[in-house]
């Protein structure tokens, strides 16, 4: 469904990604783990067109999308919950979800999906009219994910959805990820919480200073001594 072939990305003179290749197939949950500054966010921003690759090709559903404008990817079925959540603090929770459905015109479908988002995250329903800026970090994360789902994406990119959340909320977020995948959405999940990410995914890539150093089945990677030592704190 999504393929990156030898993608390199620079921030001016600094090379942030070197020759990254990865694939995500229809229906999978793939996770990308790595330490701070490894290049996880850079990878997602490049896929969504917020950054342009210096080299390499990105294809999605058979079409080359390298360097395509971000807003054109959304109608093709790609959505992202960005690092730092990026909610519109000056808009209400409902308006944020409306923005998620910006490209859609089917009023009925939108209101159904809004209900679905509220079922996924009942907390959002209670805060429907509240400005997103007044939500807690965990609630903002739920909103960012709910909002991303409002475009009915086929591929959902999640950038550290569990960052900075209390264990109970981390649990809620991963449960939501399981739910979203069971409804048929393909997910590329970036996480520092390697433990949870490996448990809720099919395959994984390990990124170190801009290079993919390991890849494979999530269960196998979780059992790999090097992964255990470096990422699972064992």
């Amino acid at each position: 469904m999504l393929t990156l072939e030898n993608v390199s990305v620079n921030y001016d003179a600094i090379e942030a990604l070197t020759d990254i290749s990865l694939t995500v197939s229809q229906g999978e949950v793939v996770t990308l783990i790595g330490a701070n500054g490894a290049g996880k966010t850079t990878t997602l921003r490049t896929i969504t067109g917020l950054l342009e690759p210096r080299n390499g090709r990105i294809t999605y559903e058979g079409k080359e999308i390298s360097g395509m404008a971000t807003h054109r990817l959304v109608p093709m079925g790609i959505a992202m919950s960005p690092e730092g959540r990026g909610v519109f603090a000056n808009l209400s929770v409902r308006e944020n979800l409306d923005m998620g459905a910006y490209i859609r015109k089917d009023k009925k479908g939108i209101s159904d999906d809004m209900e679905r988002a509220f079922t996924l995250f009942p907390r959002l329903k209670e805060r429907e009219k509240q400005k997103a800026g007044t939500l807690s970090g965990g609630e903002q994360q739920m909103l960012a994910m709910g909002r991303a789902m409002m475009s009915r994406p086929r591929l959902l990119l999640l950038d550290e959805p569990s960052l900075g959340l209390a264990p109970l909320l981390v649990h809620t977020i991963f449960e939501a990820i399981d739910n979203i995948r069971s409804e048929g959405t393909t997910i590329l999940l970036v996480e520092q919480n390697a433990n949870a990410a490996l448990h809720h995914s099919d395959r994984a890539y390990v990124l170190e200073t801009g290079r993919i150093v390991m890849e494979g089945d999530s269960k196998q990677l979780a059992a790999d001594p090097r992964v255990k030592e470096a990422y699972l704190g064992e």
């Binding site: 969504t48 807003h71 959304v74 990026g86 909610v87 000056n90 923005m99």
Partner: peptide, 20 residues
């Protein structure tokens, strides 16, 4: 609504499919 979204966060607005 798109104007308000763009004014708050340009990249988030792009991710919603807004032609900023």
């Amino acid at each position: 609504k798109a104007m308000r979204a763009v004014s708050f966060n340009l990249n988030s607005a792009k991710l919603m499919g807004v032609n900023t």
